[in-house]
């Protein structure tokens, strides 16, 4: 039998990253400040996780200015959506396997 752990995505093995992916799945896009408020994390922590997801091309970054203040928005990519779905399936597999 295959090991269900093999399907897990190492990049997504952090709660904050999973939450980011969830928020970006439920919404077209989300900005940094609102994301920080929602997840209740520090600037640095959130930025690190966003960077990691960006590096993997799971999310896109859009920088612009709103009222002369910098505004950074994030969007999930098609690749990110697929990875997120796969990872969720793998998590469910693990849960099912251990419940038996």
């Amino acid at each position: 039998m295959k090991n269900p752990f093999d399907h897990l995505d190492r990049i997504l093995e952090h709660r904050v990253r999973l939450q980011i992916m969830g928020v970006l799945t439920a919404n077209d896009s989300f900005d940094f400040v609102s994301l920080k408020e929602l997840l209740q994390t520090s600037d640095g922590n959130l930025a690190t996780h966003l960077k990691a997801l960006e590096r993997e091309k799971y999310i896109l970054v859009q920088k612009s200015f709103v009222d002369r203040k910098p505004n950074t928005r994030y969007k999930i990519t098609e690749r990110g959506k697929q990875a997120f779905r796969k990872h969720l399936d793998a998590m469910e597999e693990v849960i099912r396997a251990q419940r038996k």
């Binding site: 999973l18 939450q19 919404n27 989300f30 469910e92 849960i95």
Partner: peptide, 21 residues
């Protein structure tokens, strides 16, 4: 157990998806 950990992960994702939208 990892299963409990993942269960909590899933719950927190669901909560964030709902709260954000």
């Amino acid at each position: 157990k990892p299963a409990d950990h993942y269960q909590e992960d899933l719950a927190s994702i669901r909560k964030m998806m709902e709260q954000s939208s």
